[in-house]
Simulated scan of single mutants.
Amino acid sequence: MTGHQTARLIAPTSRLHRAWLDAHAEWGPGRHEDGFGLTAADEIDSATGFAGWIRRMAGESAQTTYRWIVDDSQVLGGIALHHQLDDHVRWAGHIGFGIRPSARGHGLAGWALGCMLERARRLGMDRVLLVCAAGNNASARTIRRGGGVLEGVVDTELGPAQRYWITL
C-alpha cells in the first residue's frame, strides 16, 4: 500500500463481498466503521444479505453518495456524503469516512474527502458538516486539512464529538 496513487472510489458492489468482509473483520468487534452506511439491521455475512445491503444503499443514492475506497481487489475504506441537512446529518455530519487499520497513514482519507467535497460542490452544496469523536486526532487532522473549521465540541450518546464545517 503506497497511498492513494492506485486507489479508486467505486460504488458499493456485491462483487467485492469477500474483500469487504476482510476489511470489516480487520476493524474487529464493536461499533461499525464509518463511511459504509452499515446499520445493525444489515446482514452482511451471506451473499444474499450482502446483496440486500448493496441494493439498499443504491436505493438511497438520491439522498446519499456511498463510495468504497479500493486498490486492486482490496477494500481499504469507505466514505459517504449525505446530500441534505436533516436530523441524522446534524448528529453525524454530511460526510463520514473510515479507513481499515492496515491502510491508515497513507493519505487515503484526505484524498477521498477531497473527492467527496468535489461531489458536494457539483450537487450545489455550499458547506458541509463533518463530525468526529473528540480525541480522534487522525480524523480531526484530515478534516482540518480539507478546510474544516471547528464549530465546537458537543456531547453525544457515543461521547464528546467535534463538529467541523467546510465551506465549499
Rank of each mutant, 00 (worst) to 15 (best):
R8W: 02
R141S: 04
M1H: 10
S14F: 10
S46N: 10
R127H: 14
Q63L: 07
H83D: 05
A58Y: 07
G59Q: 08
E60D: 14
R8K: 14
A19V: 07
Q5Y: 03
I99D: 01
P29T: 12
H24T: 09
M57P: 06
A134N: 03
S46G: 10
D155R: 07
H106A: 13
D155I: 02
I143K: 04
T64V: 15
T2L: 11
V149Y: 07
Y66H: 10
G98H: 00
Y164L: 08
I10K: 05
I44F: 05
T2D: 08
F50L: 08
L108C: 09
E157F: 03
I95A: 04
L113M: 14
R163P: 08
Q63A: 05
H17M: 05
G124A: 06
D155K: 12
M116G: 04
Y164D: 06
I10F: 07
L150H: 03
D45Q: 14
M125I: 13
T156E: 00
R100K: 13
A19G: 07
H106Q: 13
G105D: 01
C115H: 04
L76R: 05
L21F: 05
H94Y: 09
L158M: 08
A120Q: 02
T13P: 00
L150Y: 01
G37E: 04
M125L: 14
L16Q: 01
L16I: 09
R121Q: 11
G110N: 15
Q74N: 15
R67E: 02
A138R: 15
M57A: 13
Q84P: 04
V70K: 03
G28N: 02
R127S: 08
G77R: 03
Q162Y: 05
R127M: 01
W165C: 08
F36Q: 03
R104G: 11
A80R: 05
R90E: 08
A80P: 01
P12W: 00
G107V: 05
W53F: 13
A161W: 02
